[in-house]
Simulated scan of single mutants.
Amino acid sequence: MRYLRDKEFRMSVLISACVAAITATAGFFLIRQQAAMAGFLLAVLGCVLVIALWLAFTLCRYRRLEKLAADTDRMLHGERDLNFTQYREGELEILANELSKLLNRLSEQADHLQAEKVYLSDSLADISHQLRTPLTSLNLVLARLGQETDLQERRKLLYEAGQLQGRISWLVEALLKISRIDAGTAVFVQEQVEVQKLMDSVLEPFAIPMELREQQVKLDIPAETAFTGDFSWSCEAVSNIVKNCMEHAGEGGVLTLRAQENSLYTELVIEDNGPGIAPEDLPHLFERFYKGKCSFGSGIGIGLALSRMIIKQQNGSIRGENRAEGGARFTIRFYKGIV
C-alpha cells in the first residue's frame, strides 16, 4: 500500500482501471449484439491504450530520475544551489527529500571544515609568532653572552637566558595541553579534590615571587570543602589564574582566595587589588592568544584560555569581572550535577 503515496502511481492505476472498465463494458454490449469482431478490436484497442499510457508514465518517471541523478552529480561536484522541491511524487519525493538533507549536511560539514582550516592556520600563525619572539631574544642573549667578558654581566645574561628558556618551555607545554584537550585525548580523573590541599599546591611555586613583590595572600577556605575533579589539571587551571592575579596586583598587592560549597556546586573565588580588567577586554578574557589592554610582562594569552578549557572539562564554569572596590575577580564553580 505504500506505493499509493506516489501520485503518479495512483493516477496510472486509476486511468488504467477506467480504460479497462470502459473497454470491458463496451465489449460486453458488443458481444451481446453479436458483434464479436468489433468487441475483439475494442479489447485490442484498450490494451494498446493501457500499454501506451504505461509507457508514457514510465518515460516521464525515468526522465525525472535522470534529472535527479544529474542534480546529484552536480551536488557531488560541489554545487550547492540545487532545488529538490520540484520532485513531488511519492517515493521520488522521499528520495529527493533525503538527498536534500544530505546536501544540507554536506554543506554544513564543508563550512565547518573550512572554518577549522582557517582556525588552524590562524593558530599556527599565532603559535609561530609567540615562539619566534622569545627565541629571537634568546639568540640575541646567547650571542651577547659569547662576546661578554665581564663576569657580573655574564651572570645577568645567563639569568635572562634562563627566563626566556623557561618561558618557551611553558609555552610549548601549555600548547601541548591545549592540543590534547582539543583532540579529546586528555584524561581527567574523577576524584575527590580538597580545596585546601589544592590551594596549598597552587601557592607553593609562587611563594618566593610573591615575597619578592611583598604581596600578601588572604585565605578563606572552610575545612572539608571539596569537589569532584582531577587534582593535577585543576591545579594547572587555578595556577594560571593566580599567576595572572599576582602579576596584576603589583608591588605590595593583596590576593584573596575564598571557597564555599553548597548542594549545587563548589565555588572558588580568586581576587586581586590591582587595576582591574579593561571593559573592552572582558568579552575576550578567555580567548586563545588574546592579550588585553592591561596585560603585563610576558603574557601570551593562553593561560586563561587553558584554565577555562580545563574547568569546562570538569563540569565547571569560570567568570571574570571587576570588583566594585577595584581589582579583578575570577569565580570558578564546579557543579555536582550536569550543567
Rank of each mutant, 00 (worst) to 15 (best):
R2K: 08
Y3I: 08
Y3S: 13
S12E: 14
L14W: 06
I15N: 07
A20C: 11
T23Q: 01
I31W: 06
R32V: 02
A38V: 01
A38Y: 04
A38S: 01
A43K: 07
G46R: 06
G46C: 05
C47F: 15
A52S: 13
L53F: 14
L53H: 15
R63A: 09
E66W: 13
K67R: 14
T72I: 05
D73A: 15
M75W: 09
M75D: 03
R80P: 10
L82C: 00
F84C: 03
F84Q: 02
T85N: 06
Q86V: 02
L92E: 00
A96I: 00
L99F: 05
L103D: 01
L103Y: 01
N104G: 00
N104W: 04
R105G: 07
D111C: 04
H112V: 04
E116Y: 10
D122R: 03
L124C: 05
I127S: 00
Q130A: 08
L135S: 11
T136F: 14
S137D: 05
L138F: 09
L140E: 13
L142F: 07
L142E: 01
L158N: 04
G166V: 02
G166D: 09
I168G: 05
L171G: 05
E173G: 05
E173D: 11
A174K: 08
L175T: 14
I181S: 00
T185Q: 03
T185K: 01
F188M: 02
V189T: 06
Q192D: 05
Q196D: 12
K197Q: 12
M199P: 02
M199F: 15
L203A: 03
I208L: 11
P209V: 04
P209L: 03
M210T: 03
L212N: 13
L212V: 12
R213I: 07
E214H: 12
Q215A: 10
Q216Y: 15
V217F: 02
D220W: 10
D220Q: 14
P222G: 14
A223I: 07
A226N: 09
T228D: 10
G229E: 02
N244V: 12
M246H: 11
E247K: 14
E247G: 13
A249G: 13
A249E: 13
G250W: 12
T256V: 11
L257C: 07
L257K: 07
R258I: 10
Q260I: 09
Y265D: 12
I270Y: 05
N273W: 08
N273Q: 10
G274F: 15
P275K: 14
G276I: 14
A278P: 03
E280S: 12
E280D: 13
L282T: 14
R288H: 12
S295H: 06
S298A: 03
G301C: 05
I302Q: 02
N315L: 05
S317A: 11
I318A: 09
R319T: 13
R323N: 01
E325H: 02
F330H: 06
I332W: 13
R333C: 04
R333E: 07
R333N: 10
